[in-house]
Amino acid sequence: MGRPIAHVAKDLGIHKEALRGCVRQARRTPVNATTGRPPPIGKSSGSSAGRTRS
């Protein structure tokens, strides 16, 4: 595995629960098998990023 979240969070100077939330979100994010990266944010992702309300 790796280092405990509490140790990494302390090294980064953030609360362990903040880091734990980021780790959980990263584990839920689908990853492209070819690039090893999450898909780009766009219209197909269902995200509302970049849209404005009027």
Rank of each mutant, 00 (worst) to 15 (best):
H7N: 09
K16L: 06
P30G: 01
S44W: 15
A6P: 09
A6R: 11
S44C: 10
G21R: 14
I5T: 09
A33F: 03
R37T: 04
A9M: 02
D11E: 13
A33W: 00
R51M: 14
G50T: 05
N32G: 04
S47V: 02
L19S: 00
M1P: 05
R37C: 05
M1I: 07
S45F: 08
A18M: 14
G42P: 05
A26E: 03
R27A: 05
G21A: 13
S44L: 14
L12G: 00
G50M: 05
R28N: 09
V23K: 08
R20K: 11
L12M: 14
P4Q: 08
S47K: 02
I5E: 09
H7T: 10
C22W: 04
A18V: 13
R27M: 05
V23R: 07
N32M: 01
K16T: 09
K10D: 13
I5W: 02
P38T: 10
S45P: 01
I14K: 12
T34R: 12
S54V: 07
G36H: 08
E17S: 12
G46K: 04
S48N: 15
P40G: 01
G13K: 07
R20S: 13
V31T: 03
G42R: 01
R51S: 10
R3F: 01
V31Q: 06
Q25F: 10
T52R: 15
G13V: 08
G21L: 12
T52V: 14
